[in-house]
Design a protein around this nucleic acid. Structure first.
Length: 152
DNA sequence: GCCAACGTTGGC
DNA sequence: GCCAACGTTGGC
C-alpha cells in the first residue's frame, strides 16, 4: 500500500465536492504530465491512500484523505474537443493520458503548505522540494505517518 | 540528440 | 499578475 499526494484546484474539485459526489468518487482527470501519469499507470494500486491537496488557492495545503478505488484507465477529457484537456494527438486506440478514480475518506483540518514546511521531519517530501510542481507525488510511509499524526 | 523558444504550474 | 522553475516542442 502506497501513499500519494494529489493536487486539485478547489475551484475545480475540492474535498467538499468529492464528499458531495455520487458514491463520493471522482475520476482524476486532467493530468497532462508524463511523470504524474506514470505514477498512476505503474504504481498506483487499489486501496492506496491519498492526501487530497488544495492548490492554486488562497490557502494551499492538505484538506482531506481519499483512497484509490479504480486503477488507471483512459482519461475521457483527452478525446473531448470541447475540453481544455483535449489532446488531438491522442486516440482511443492509443490513449496518451490516464486517470484513476479516488473515493472520499474524510475531510481533515487544513494542514497548510506553510505548516508542512515548518516540520523538519518533512523536509524530504517531494512536494516541498524547490521547484517541485508535480501534481501527483509519492509520500513515504514515514512522512505519511507523521502527517496523519498531525491531521487526526 | 542538442538546445532555444515557448508553455505551464503554482506559490506569492 | 508576477515570475521561478520545469517541461515540451521542433528546427537543425
Amino acid at each position: 500500500m502506497n501513499y500519494w499526494l494529489m493536487k486539485s484546484e478547489p475551484d475545480d474539485v475540492s474535498i467538499d465536492d468529492l464528499a458531495a459526489r455520487p458514491d463520493q468518487t471522482v475520476g482524476w482527470y486532467g493530468v497532462r504530465n508524463y511523470q504524474a501519469r506514470n505514477f498512476m499507470r505503474d504504481e498506483m494500486q487499489l486501496g492506496d491512500q491519498v492526501f487530497f491537496y488544495h492548490s492554486s488557492c488562497k490557502e494551499p495545503g492538505i484538506a482531506g484523505l481519499a483512497t484509490v478505488c479504480r486503477m488507471a484507465y483512459p482519461d475521457p477529457t483527452q478525446f473531448d474537443p470541447k475540453s481544455k484537456y483535449f489532446d488531438a494527438k491522442s486516440t482511443p486506440d492509443k490513449p496518451r493520458w490516464l486517470q484513476v478514480d479516488v473515493r472520499f475518506v474524510q475531510k481533515t483540518r487544513l494542514l497548510s503548505l506553510n505548516q508542512l514546511r515548518s516540520f523538519p521531519e518533512l523536509c524530504e517530501m517531494v512536494l516541498l522540494q524547490k521547484g517541485s510542481r508535480l501534481s501527483i507525488t509519492p509520500v513515504s510511509d514515514a512522512d505519511a505517518a507523521f502527517i496523519l499524526g498531525k491531521l487526526c
